[in-house]
C-alpha cells in the first residue's frame, strides 16, 4: 500500500512539473525530434546480433535425436541376450503422452461395454390392460392398468435399453497411443523381446514320463506344468513377486498358454489379436515375441506410413525396424 501511495504521489508531482512548464517547452518534451516514441525507462543499447551464415553452427555439431534405438532379443525361457537390433525411434521411443494413452484406453473401454442392459416399459410388460378399478365410486384413487410405472410390477419409465456405448477415435491417434505404450515400456526396461517361436519347453524327462504313461492323471500333468512355469518365471524375476508378466505371441502356444492359465497369479498370455493398449500398460512387463512386435507395429503405424503410393524419393521414408546390429 505504501509503495502504491508513493507511486501515486510521484505521478502527481510529475504531472505538476509538466503543467508548470510553458507550452513550447512542454511540446519539446512530449515530441522528441529524433524518435517518435520515448519510454520513461532508461534505454539500453540494442544488442548487436548479426545473423550470418558463418555464425550458424555446423550441421554436424547440432544435436539431433537418435532415429533408432537398440533392442536386445532374448532367448525365451533362459533369458539369454542373443542379439542386438536397431529399431526406429518412431516405433519404440516416442515421448510419453498420457492424454493420448487415456483417450485410447477410454475408447477401448467404451467399445468393450456390452450394452445389453434392458428393462420393460409399460407397453412391454405382459398382462391385461383392463382398468383395475372404476374411475369413480370406490372411494379410492383413480387407477389405470396394472402396467403403470407407479405400480409394483409395472413398467420402468426411463429404464435401460440395449445400446452401443462405443465411441470413436482417430485411427492415427489410436496407433500413436499403441506405439506410445510400447515406447513407455521400452524406456522403463519393461519390454522383453524374445526370439520367434516363443514356447515353454518342458523337460524331456517329463515328456518321456507322459509318453510312457507314468502320469495317467491329468491333475499330475497340470501341476507339473504349473510348477515348471513358476520356476521359470521366478528364476527370471518375471513372476508374481515382480508384478506378473504379459506374454504376447503371434498365435496360441499350447504349453505356454496352458501353463499360464494354471497360474494366473504369475502372469497372463495373449495372442496378438487379443491385445489392447490397456493390456500393454498392465502388469510388470511385456514379454513379446519379435515377430509379434513387428506385426503389431506394422498394424499400428497409420500416422507414419502414407496409404497413398508415392514415388518421390525425397519424401521421408517409412521407419525401419529390426536391422541387426550385433549377432
Amino acid at each position: 500500500m505504501a509503495s502504491k501511495g508513493v507511486r501515486g504521489l510521484n505521478e502527481a508531482m510529475r504531472s505538476l512539473s509538466l503543467s508548470s512548464q510553458t507550452c513550447r517547452e512542454a511540446a519539446s518534451h512530449r515530441i522528441p525530434s529524433s524518435t517518435f516514441t520515448r519510454s520513461m525507462a532508461t534505454e539500453a543499447p540494442l544488442p548487436t546480433i548479426e545473423t550470418t551464415a558463418d555464425t550458424t553452427p555446423a550441421a554436424g555439431s547440432l544435436w539431433r535425436p537418435a532415429t533408432t534405438v537398440p533392442l536386445t532379443i532374448f532367448n525365451f525361457p533362459s533369458f539369454e541376450p542373443q542379439r542386438l537390433e536397431s529399431w526406429s525411434s518412431k516405433h519404440l521411443n516416442l515421448p510419453l503422452r498420457r492424454d493420448i494413452l487415456h483417450h485410447a484406453v477410454v475408447y477401448e473401454g467404451d467399445n468393450t461395454r456390452q450394452g445389453t442392459a434392458s428393462s420393460k416399459t409399460r407397453y412391454e410388460v405382459a398382462g391385461s390392460h383392463r382398468k383395475m378399478a372404476p374411475q369413480k365410486g370406490t372411494g379410492r384413487a383413480r387407477v389405470g392398468d396394472r402396467q403403470s410405472p407407479i405400480r409394483r410390477g409395472g413398467g420402468k419409465t426411463f429404464g435401460p435399453k440395449p445400446r452401443d456405448f462405443g465411441t470413436k477415435i482417430t485411427r492415427k491417434m489410436y496407433d500413436l497411443a499403441w506405439r506410445t505404450a510400447l515406447s513407455y515400456r521400452y524406456r522403463r526396461g519393461e519390454l522383453v523381446v524374445c526370439q520367434d517361436g516363443m514356447e515353454l519347453p518342458l523337460p524331456d524327462a517329463f515328456e518321456a514320463m507322459v509318453a510312457r504313461g507314468d502320469l495317467p492323471q491329468d491333475e499330475l500333468r497340470r501341476s507339473f506344468k504349473a510348477k515348471w512355469l513358476t520356476q521359470v518365471l521366478e528364476t527370471n524375476q518375471w513372476g508374481r513377486a515382480n508384478g506378473r508378466s504379459t506374454f504376447i505371441t503371434g498365435d496360441r502356444r499350447q504349453n505356454l498358454f496352458e501353463a499360464l492359465d494354471l497360474v494366473p497369479k504369475q502372469g497372463r498370455a495373449l495372442g496378438l489379436g487379443m491385445v489392447d493398449v490397456k493390456d500393454l500398460l498392465e502388469t510388470g512387463r511385456i514379454i513379446i515375441e519379435r515377430s509379434a512386435l513387428k506385426e503389431m507395429l506394422k498394424q499400428h503405424q497409420s500416422d507414419l506410413v502414407s496409404s497413398v503410393f508415392v514415388t518421390n524419393a525425397a519424401l521421408p521414408r517409412r521407419p525401419q525396424s529390426g536391422q541387426i546390429l550385433v549377432e
Partner: peptide, 17 residues
C-alpha cells in the same frame, strides 16, 4: 505331488542369469 519330495533339486529350471 510335485511339491513334495518327488521333484529332485537337480530338476529345477536354470536360466542364464
Amino acid at each position: 505331488w510335485w511339491d513334495q519330495q518327488h521333484w529332485s533339486k537337480v530338476g529345477n529350471f536354470m536360466g542364464f542369469k
